[in-house]
Write a protein that binds this DNA or RNA. Structure first.
Ligand code: MN
Ligand code: MN
Ligand code: ZN
Ligand code: ZN
Lengths: 144, 144
DNA sequence: CTCAAAACTTAGATTATGTCTAATTTGATA
DNA sequence: TATCAAATTAGACATAATCTAAGTTTTGAG
């Protein structure tokens, strides 16, 4: 995705394409992982333009509200963010908190009976367990 | 669930049944909602035995590790807890952060190919949208 | 173009949530 | 009952996130 596409993405959502906001969105689009706000703040400040901590948080909030970015809450850790590209689910590591993408599959929707007066916006699956990095060392706890 | 059952639950998981730990577990078993640590702390301190904030957090951690309690992370809000009774999924309100139980349904497991070296422990579905309390006032935003 | 309003950014203070420390108390069991 | 690992405690500390108030930039009406 090139710079113009990101600009159109922002403006299509009613957000001005400021240098700071662009930097946050571009970083998320170009990096596949799930960085924390602190990591994004650090990354966009390694090069110009500079962006304050408040602005980084403000822009992340705006991007999430606009539906361009997803926020993933992880128990006991800082929230993580990713650009909403292809639909996908998430795997969260019990041990290190790492968030990884899992391929999309349709989720069984609740019947309108069990949904009641609620308004459903989305369904996602969270897979939990040990990531590829943590699984081996956990399995060998007693051995090592 | 009576007191003895809770005691057996704790001791069956290798945890001593102390007054403070019992109070936390009993509160979660007896209250259907999804209280925060702060709410649990306040609740168990309305009556004896008293429990410090550190102990409340320690016990919640122990109960989660033992698999008796589930912790639910919510974007931008304090974590919430519930006793793991019947299996169920969760609905999280976009607007107020309320966590509500949704009836259990089996989750499509990822193929071992897409799982790679990860070790899967559980799959849960998070439904998102507006809870019954927030849905009406949101729909009438422009009207009111 | 000009200017006022709206949107945006900023540094740093502040709040919210959760963890840690070091001293004390409790309780299982020998 | 003596022992000692497990548990509790008050309050300091850490981390993540939000707020405030002032300044800057963009927009668009006139
Ligand atoms: Mn993702
Ligand atoms: Mn629940
Ligand atoms: Zn891991
Ligand atoms: Zn709600």
């Amino acid at each position: 995705m090139d710079g113009e596409a990101i600009k159109r993405l922002l403006e299509g959502s009613g957000l001005r394409c400021t240098a700071q906001r662009y930097a946050v969105m571009a970083f998320l689009v170009e990096h596949a992982g799930h960085p924390t706000a602190a990591e994004i703040f650090e990354a966009v400040n390694r090069l110009d333009p500079r962006s304050s901590r408040a602005t980084t948080y403000n822009n992340l909030r705006d991007l999430v509200q606009a539906g361009l970015v997803r926020e993933v809450a992880v128990e006991g850790r800082a929230a993580r963010f990713d650009a909403k590209g292809m639909r996908h689910h998430h795997f969260i590591c019990d041990r290190c908190g790492e968030v990884e993408d899992m391929e999309w599959c349709d989720v069984p929707r609740p019947g309108s009976g069990s949904l009641g007066k609620r308004v459903l916006r989305e369904c996602e699956i969270i897979f939990r367990g040990l990531c590829a990095k943590c699984a081996p060392r956990h399995a060998s706890r007693k051995v090592s």
